[in-house]
Amino acid sequence: MGRAKIVALVGEAAVRQALLPEADRETTAIAVRYLLQVLAENAPGATVEVRVPPFGAVQCVEGPNHTRGTPPNVVETDAATWLQLATGGIAWTDALQRGSVSASGQRADLSDELPVLWQRTPV
């Protein structure tokens, strides 16, 4: 059984809080998971696995599905970088150049998917 979906109201509030310097670990975890959830909703598929340890991972992007073993297309980064990538605080190419994100595989390029459209409720 999969993890329960994070509702927009909760997820969006967590993202706004997680972008502040004083954000706690629980808020950061919810924000990371919510933004991963939105990415998977916006780019459905199972070609690329996006990992943000220790908080979560999703499969996304249309194309050949991966079912067993190590995925051929993997993106991995830390929570702070993921929050910045997903909200537009840093560009995909900049994060790659800084070494803040690891991307392996021919399809492990999220530049067309980032930033994600995560704000659905008025601020």
Score class of each variant (00 low, 15 high):
D78E: 13
W92Q: 03
G99V: 08
A18H: 02
E76L: 02
R68K: 14
V15Y: 07
G63P: 09
L19H: 07
V61M: 11
R51M: 09
V74S: 00
A46Q: 14
A91M: 06
E26V: 14
G105T: 10
R33D: 01
D24V: 02
R98F: 07
G99D: 03
V116F: 03
L96D: 10
W118C: 03
P21N: 06
V50Q: 05
Q84W: 04
V74D: 00
Q59V: 00
A103M: 09
A43H: 12
Q106P: 12
V48M: 04
T93N: 15
V116P: 06
A46T: 11
R51C: 11
A31Q: 00
M1D: 11
Y34P: 02
L85E: 00
P64A: 14
P53Y: 11
G45L: 03
G105H: 10
R33P: 08
A108W: 00
V101L: 11
A4R: 15
G105V: 06
E62Q: 14
T93D: 15
Q84P: 08
R68E: 07
V74N: 01
G69S: 09
P122S: 12
S102N: 10
N65F: 10
D112F: 06
T121S: 13
T67Q: 13
D78W: 01
D112E: 15
L96E: 12
G89V: 02
W118F: 01
L83P: 06
A108M: 04
L20W: 03
P44D: 01
A23W: 07
V50F: 04
N42R: 13
E12S: 03
V48D: 03
Q59A: 07
E113F: 12
V58L: 07
L19G: 12
L35V: 06
M1Q: 10
G45K: 01
G105M: 08
N65A: 15
S102L: 14
T121F: 07
